[in-house]
């Protein structure tokens, strides 16, 4: 129970209404989710559209409250309204569309937004804004207007706006979904730096397998239930199970899987390109020697 986020038998459902406004039934989005997220980890949450992964993410900082069960953030129950700002300061959240997260017309004023809300002293705000902008490598753009920046840069500003609060955990809800490949790379590098260099717990909601493969732990959600929860190598060795719930595996893993099917003795735990290339190189040079 010492993790930064704990959920116990979390159930979330919403009511369905007909045209007359009468309740006709309930739609259960999350079903008995029990999770324990350790501080300092890098957790990826995978699932196809409508699996409930975004709904789950919104429970991590009290945006949504459980219908049944409990969510504890650093030991605080998310239904405790008096401490909602402590919760939101502990767990920051970054969304998909960077344009819809930026409030101010100047980069540094936007990064300062959360601190202004918290009533931090102006001098301290200045210090923390500069620090946050340097962490995401956007310090040179501090006086630009958001609309002059690229998508990846805007998303990094949105991340800076969260880390200025100095949260212990950041939940990212598909932060790369609207970005081009270059922006995606920038964001993944930023996420990894936050996790490895600054010790911030990262929960990355994504449907890009290559991104999930970089995490320490992957949780696969399907129809509101936890389907798999393990290290990426183990998760992606379950190629058939993942495919059956409409998910893919990283391309390297897919290649190994196809090779195995056609009779080559390929390992099932290869998830990144380098490992894959090394294996193929060994395989081919062995053949040549024979």
């Amino acid at each position: 129970m010492e993790g930064i986020i704990n959920t116990e038998n979390l159930i979330f459902e919403y009511s369905i209404y007909d045209e007359n406004g009468d309740e006709t039934g309930k739609n259960r989005v999350l079903e008995n989710i029990t999770l324990d997220i350790k501080e300092g980890g890098f957790v990826a949450v995978l699932g196809h559209n409508g699996s409930g992964k975004s709904t789950l993410a919104k429970h991590f900082n009290g945006i949504l409250l459980p219908t049944e069960g409990k969510v504890l953030i650093d030991g605080i129950d998310s239904t405790d309204e008096s401490r909602i700002y402590d919760i939101r300061q502990t767990v920051g959240m970054v969304f998909q569309n960077p344009d819809n997260q930026i409030v101010a017309t100047i980069v540094e004023e936007d990064v300062a937004f959360a601190l202004e809300n918290l009533g931090v002293e102006p001098k301290e705000i200045r210090r923390r804004v500069d620090e946050a902008l340097k962490i995401v490598d956007m310090y040179h753009y501090r006086e630009h207007a958001p609309h002059q920046l690229s998508g990846g840069q805007k998303q990094r500003i949105a991340i800076a706006g969260i880390i200025a609060m100095r949260p212990r955990c950041i939940v990212m809800d598909e932060p790369t979904a609207m970005l081009d490949p270059k922006g995606r790379k920038e964001i993944m590098a930023t996420i990894k730096a936050l996790n490895k260099e600054h010790g911030i717990t990262v929960i990355l909601i994504t449907h890009y397998m290559e991104e999930a493969a970089q995490a320490d732990r992957v949780i696969v959600i399907d129809k509101g239930k936890i389907l798999l929860d393990d290290v990426p190598k183990k998760i992606f060795s379950e190629v058939e199970l993942l495919k059956s719930v409409g998910l893919d595996v990283p391309q390297a893993t897919e290649l190994m899987y196809d090779l195995r099917k056609s009779g080559v003795d390929a390992p099932s735990d290869i998830i990144d390109v380098d490992e894959c290339a090394e294996f193929l190189f060994r395989l081919l040079s062995d053949k040549e020697q024979k």
Partner: peptide
């Protein structure tokens, strides 16, 4: 749609109106 998402993002950044708010630039 944008307004909805922006409101959510503002809430995540502890926005609670003008009371007790400070500014980076005085």
């Amino acid at each position: 749609k944008r307004a909805n998402e922006l409101a959510l993002a503002m809430e995540c950044r502890c926005y609670r109106g003008g009371e007790g708010r400070t500014r980076i630039k005085q």
